[in-house]
């Protein structure tokens, strides 16, 4: 899966979890909080996305991530470490 595809999965879950936002309006260089996500929204987006990508990353390891692009990088890195079945 390419990074762009990972970003698209994240965007889809942002659209499903936040109000009044379209995928094409989401700039990956911004954080979810910039689009009105509260802390519980972010947890839900991240856990939905990890389930969909079939990866597991402890929450503490995601604490320093600043924007959607960095989150996608971290997910891609994890997917490369542990190839999916």
């Amino acid at each position: 899966m390419t990074k762009q595809e990972v970003i698209d999965v994240i965007k889809k879950n942002i659209v499903e979890n936040l109000d009044d936002i379209k995928a094409e309006d989401i700039d990956p260089m911004k954080s979810m909080a910039d689009y009105g996500a509260n802390s519980l929204d972010i947890i839900e987006v991240v856990s939905c996305t990890m389930r969909e990508l079939n990866i597991k990353i402890p929450r503490a390891e995601l604490a320093d991530i600043k924007n959607i692009d960095q989150l996608a990088d971290r997910f891609v890195q994890n997917m490369n470490q542990s190839p999916q079945a």
């Binding site: 979890n17 109000d19 519980l40 929204d41 947890i43 839900e44």
Partner: peptide, 9 residues
């Protein structure tokens, strides 16, 4: 069972 935090909406 899921412990999911459901959005009011």
């Amino acid at each position: 069972y899921t412990a999911k935090r459901f959005k009011g909406r």
